[in-house]
């Protein structure tokens, strides 16, 4: 603290110093594009009550006299069967879809990573037991299992989250287990064991942080998949229901009108597409960056 500051003394040579700016510039453009697009969608979802032109249309409002108006200056995306502004509903729908995506990724990622890292580090019969359980879950086609669950439970957003999370965690468990198993053989883990660091701490401090990157990439790649699956469940009437704004539900309600009132189904469909795309681009970009 008292020593005079000599420029460059003790610090890494300039080329090695990683400023936030350098780090940002080094990130693949694709990942940046995906992150920016996703940030915009999140922002739109958060600000929906303020930026939606007709906030009350996000819910149960009805305006029978304004039903099925084509896109215009007042209603950029047109109106639906009961006269609600489609743009407002798409913005509110972003809240539902992102909530589902985040909740599913957090739950299935959390459960999968926790089980996977234990299986990967412990090996032996612990690994065998955990992996056989995940195999059982993986043996069912994911959408079918989600469907069955959604039918048993009451249709709701929570149901969608549970139904998807139940079928997704085994993938993260399997991925994490294989990464953690290879991390567990590395010198720094042996070195921690030789110090007498207790096993739970070794897992938490060394194995987990060093196993996480590929899982994070997979999670961001899967964000789009979750949104598509949630939309599919809602579309089949097993997820969100009226008057909640949800993209899959909106597509389902608008599909019979496609030939006559194309805007009712097209805009929520585009929203699904763009969001899934943003997640994928982000994930791809991260993957490319980490592969280097």
């Amino acid at each position: 603290m008292t020593a005079p500051v000599v420029p460059g003394a003790g610090a890494a040579p300039p080329a090695l110093r990683r400023t936030p700016l350098r780090r940002f510039a080094g990130v693949d453009r694709l990942a940046v594009a995906g992150a920016v697009l996703l940030a915009l969608i999140v922002l739109a979802a958060l600000l929906a009550p303020w930026i939606a032109p007709y906030p009350e249309d996000g819910g149960s409002a009805t305006h029978p006299l304004e039903a099925l108006l084509p896109p215009s200056a007042e209603h950029w995306f047109g109106t639906d069967q009961v006269g609600r502004d489609v743009l407002s509903r798409v913005l509110y729908g972003a809240r539902t879809s992102l909530l589902i995506a985040v909740a599913v990724l957090v739950i299935s990622g959390g459960v999968g990573v926790a089980l996977g890292v234990v299986a990967g580090y412990a090996g032996g019969w612990v690994r065998d037991v955990i992996m056989r359980v995940t195999d059982v879950f993986l043996a069912f086609p994911a959408l079918l299992l989600s469907l069955a669950l959604a039918v048993v439970l009451q249709p709701s957003v929570t149901t969608v989250i549970v139904a998807i999370a139940v079928t997704w965690w085994p993938w993260y468990a399997r991925l994490t287990a294989s990464v953690a198993a290879s991390v567990a053989t590395r010198g720094f883990v042996d070195s921690a064991r030789c110090l007498g660091v207790p096993a739970p701490l070794i897992v938490f401090r060394h194995v987990l942080p060093n196993s996480l990157t590929p899982v994070l990439v997979q999670l961001s790649l899967d964000g789009g998949g979750v949104i598509l699956t949630a939309a599919a469940l809602s579309y089949l009437g097993l997820g969100a229901h009226e008057p909640t704004s949800e993209w899959g539900l909106m597509v389902q309600q608008g599909q019979s009108l496609f030939t006559t009132n194309w805007w009712v189904v097209t805009f929520p469909g585009l929203a699904i597409l763009v969001t899934a795309f943003a997640f994928n681009v982000l994930g791809e970009g991260l993957r490319a960056r980490l592969a280097r």
Binding site: G187, F188, S191
Partner: peptide, 10 residues
Amino acid sequence: FQDGSEALDP
């Protein structure tokens, strides 16, 4: 161990 880069958590 043989390799310091292996023996230290990156």
